[in-house]
Design a protein around this nucleic acid. Sequence first.
DNA 1: TCTTAAAAGATAATTATTATCGATTAGGAT
DNA 2: ATCCTAATCGATAATAATTATCTTTTAAGA
Lengths: 149, 149
Amino acid sequence: MSDPTARLDEMLAKLRERHFRITPQRLAILETLAVSDGHPSVESVFAEVRKKFPTTSLATVYKTITLLKELNEVLELGFSDGSNRYDGSKPTPHPHMICTRCKKIIDPDLTSLEQLTREASQKTGFKIVTQRLDFFGICPECLQEKTSG
Amino acid sequence: MSDPTARLDEMLAKLRERHFRITPQRLAILETLAVSDGHPSVESVFAEVRKKFPTTSLATVYKTITLLKELNEVLELGFSDGSNRYDGSKPTPHPHMICTRCKKIIDPDLTSLEQLTREASQKTGFKIVTQRLDFFGICPECLQEKTSG
DNA sequence: TCTTAAAAGATAATTATTATCGATTAGGAT
DNA sequence: ATCCTAATCGATAATAATTATCTTTTAAGA
């Protein structure tokens, strides 16, 4: 995992560079995204920010996350059932391992992804801009549990 | 691409096996999904089926596709913006190349995916059940076009 | 301190999907 | 071939995540 403080500084630098304002609510949202390594949802970011600023609106969280997406400072993991998750600590596209039992999401370090991307580009003639790779399964912790539920 | 007639027969066999009814509307939906190699949306399936049966409801299309998903006879390519697409001709998980300009989706044949999956499983301890891999970029046809738009 | 455009907050609108429910019908039984 | 009944259809309401709207507040440069 990367350094949360450094990530926060990067985000702030990007906002200042583009002359976006650093509001207290925005700062709280950035902090939450930079610190958490658990790929939080909009709702959980909202809940976290509300602890500091109880009047924060859900719309503010959405607007800030949309802005961060445009600045490539947060990675959106969209799912078609609406359970979107966000990665602020490592905002460039990378593979994810998703446990379908406990919903945990972790980042594997896969050396052979580069090779696969080359193969895809060569075989199809596509100019590849970005990619999305998710593995779904059961994490080691859940595998060890005797009872399912 | 696989044989549409064979795919349709497979789908029908699966429905009969589980004692689901073969209604004219369902048959039309299955045919559309088995024939099309362009990864259609719910709306385009709906439009196609309406040509034969103008009273078909959108709900019927949704219900049939949901059923086919449960039977593993159609692959859902869900996107968080709601632009979901469906693959009835090759219903097992496989990589996709998605052109962000013309929205075309094609199926590459990638030999090194198996190796990548092994690497992911070994490095994380996950028992991998399924996966989703999308490459986003510009297809060869769009690359050749002089003007963008 | 002043000014003003950006952002916040509250809420309405949008949109894909799901649920509901009365009407219709596929397909097995007779 | 006809009957019966649960499955399915069709129409529409409900749901839920996200986006739009609009008034009030405020960050930050002058």
